[in-house]
Amino acid sequence: RCGYYVEKKKRFCRMVVAAGKRFCGEHA
């Protein structure tokens, strides 16, 4: 899952990502 920290939401993104990727499409 995406490891991007969403500052405005004060939590991690947690969106599912493709195999081998660290971030989702929105945060890549």
Rank of each mutant, 00 (worst) to 15 (best):
K10A: 09
R22G: 07
F23G: 01
R11N: 08
E7L: 05
M15E: 10
C2L: 08
E26S: 06
Y5V: 07
R11T: 14
A19L: 09
A18K: 09
R22N: 11
A19E: 14
R1A: 11
R11G: 09
V6H: 07
R1W: 05
A19C: 04
M15Y: 02
E26K: 03
R1L: 15
G25A: 07
E26I: 00
E26Y: 01
G25T: 09
R11V: 13
V16S: 05
Y4P: 01
G3P: 08
H27A: 05
R11P: 03
K8Y: 10
R11D: 13
A19T: 08
F23T: 08
M15P: 00
Y5K: 07
E7Q: 12
R22I: 15
R1S: 14
F12S: 07
C24R: 00
G25V: 09
R1N: 15
H27C: 10
M15T: 09
V6P: 02
A18P: 03
K21R: 07
V16G: 13
E26M: 07
E7C: 07
V6R: 06
V6L: 11
Y5E: 01
G20A: 08
C2V: 03
Y5F: 15
R22V: 04
G3F: 08
Y4D: 07
K10R: 11
R11A: 09
C24W: 12
F23Y: 03
E7N: 08
V6C: 12
C2I: 10
E7I: 02
M15R: 05
R11K: 14
F12V: 06
Y4C: 01
C2N: 02
V17H: 04
F12Y: 13
R11F: 13
F23H: 08
K21D: 08
G3D: 00
M15G: 12
F12M: 15
V6M: 06
H27P: 03
R1Y: 07
R1V: 15
H27T: 11
R11W: 02
V17A: 12
R22Q: 06
G3N: 12
R22T: 12
M15A: 09
A18R: 04
M15L: 06
G3Y: 11
C24N: 00
K9Q: 15
E26P: 08
Y5Q: 05
H27L: 15
G3R: 03
A19S: 09
K9I: 15
K8C: 08
C2H: 00
G3A: 08
G20E: 09
F12A: 03
G25Y: 15
G25P: 10
E7Y: 05
K10F: 06
Y4V: 07
V6A: 04
M15D: 04
A19N: 05
A19D: 05
A28V: 15
E7H: 03
R22P: 13
G20L: 13
F12R: 03
K21G: 11
K10D: 07
K9V: 15
G20M: 08
Y5W: 12
F23I: 00
V17G: 02
K21P: 00
R1H: 15
E26A: 10
A19R: 07
A18Y: 03
A28T: 14
H27G: 00
E7V: 05
G25D: 10
G20W: 15
K8N: 10
K8L: 12
A28R: 02
V6D: 12
K9N: 13
K9A: 15
